[in-house]
């Protein structure tokens, strides 16, 4: 009945069976906190983000941090070798993680990472796409929808302009990127369900 935490934001999927649930959670939290702080630092640098109200900044980050991390850490998923590198630096195969209890979310994240990486975006394009992911006016709890929507539209226009400039013969890339947004929502929902299962367990 050994427990495993098959999230790559953990240092390792192995959980010390002698530790309490609280201790396991504390250790996991300690592991992913720097990545979350990086997302906040990234958000602060998005032009216009700091002009949103404080509650809306928090709401956007609460709702979108997981999706931003999926984009930023897509490279942890090695599609060719079917392995995932955890934050501790060690690689684990899909089969190993499946044996530890990983489910459909794992496959869905591999699919997403493969498609995103195959688009061959530059660092600048990826950053702008990540900003679009974070600034979404339809997140729950947004107070000033108009302000968030205006910033979202500005960012989407900038992304389209950059993609069009850099890939003049590949007009479908921008559309493909926008279609990644509902994919990320779906992954976010699946992840929330897994968290619930973990907390209940």
């Amino acid at each position: 009945n050994r427990m495993h935490l098959v999230c790559p934001m953990n240092t390792s999927p192995h959980v010390d069976p002698h530790k309490s649930g609280h201790e396991v959670w504390e250790e996991f939290s300690h592991s992913f906190t720097p990545a979350v702080r990086e997302v906040v630092e990234f958000a602060k640098k998005i032009p216009g983000f700091r002009d949103l109200s404080q509650p809306d900044q928090v709401s956007l980050l609460k709702a979108g941090t997981f999706e931003v991390l999926v984009v930023r850490f897509a490279s942890l998923f090695d599609v060719k070798d079917r392995t995932i590198t955890f934050l501790g630096g060690k690689k684990y195969s899909v089969d190993t993680l499946r044996a530890m209890g990983a489910g459909d979310l794992l496959n869905s994240m591999f699919d997403f990472s493969e498609k995103l990486i195959n688009l061959g975006l530059s660092e600048e394009e990826m950053s702008l796409f990540t900003a679009v992911v974070l600034v979404s006016a339809d997140r729950s709890g947004i107070e000033n929808v108009n302000s968030v929507e205006a910033l979202q539209e500005t960012l989407i226009r900038a992304l389209r302009s950059l993609i069009t400039k850099n890939h003049p013969n590949e007009s479908a890339i921008f559309t493909k990127l926008l279609l990644k947004l509902p994919d990320l929502r779906s992954l976010n929902n699946m992840h929330s369900e897994q968290l619930l299962a973990f907390k209940v367990h």
């Binding site: 906040v40 928090v58 941090t65």
Partner: peptide, 27 residues
């Protein structure tokens, strides 16, 4: 489980990380 971020303690991390910046704005 409508608010996974709060359950994870994410909200606290986010607020603290934003805080410095927000205090800076208030000044």
């Amino acid at each position: 489980f409508s608010d996974p971020a709060s359950n994870l303690g994410l909200e606290d991390i986010i607020r603290k990380a934003l805080m410095g910046n927000l205090e800076e704005r208030q000044e």
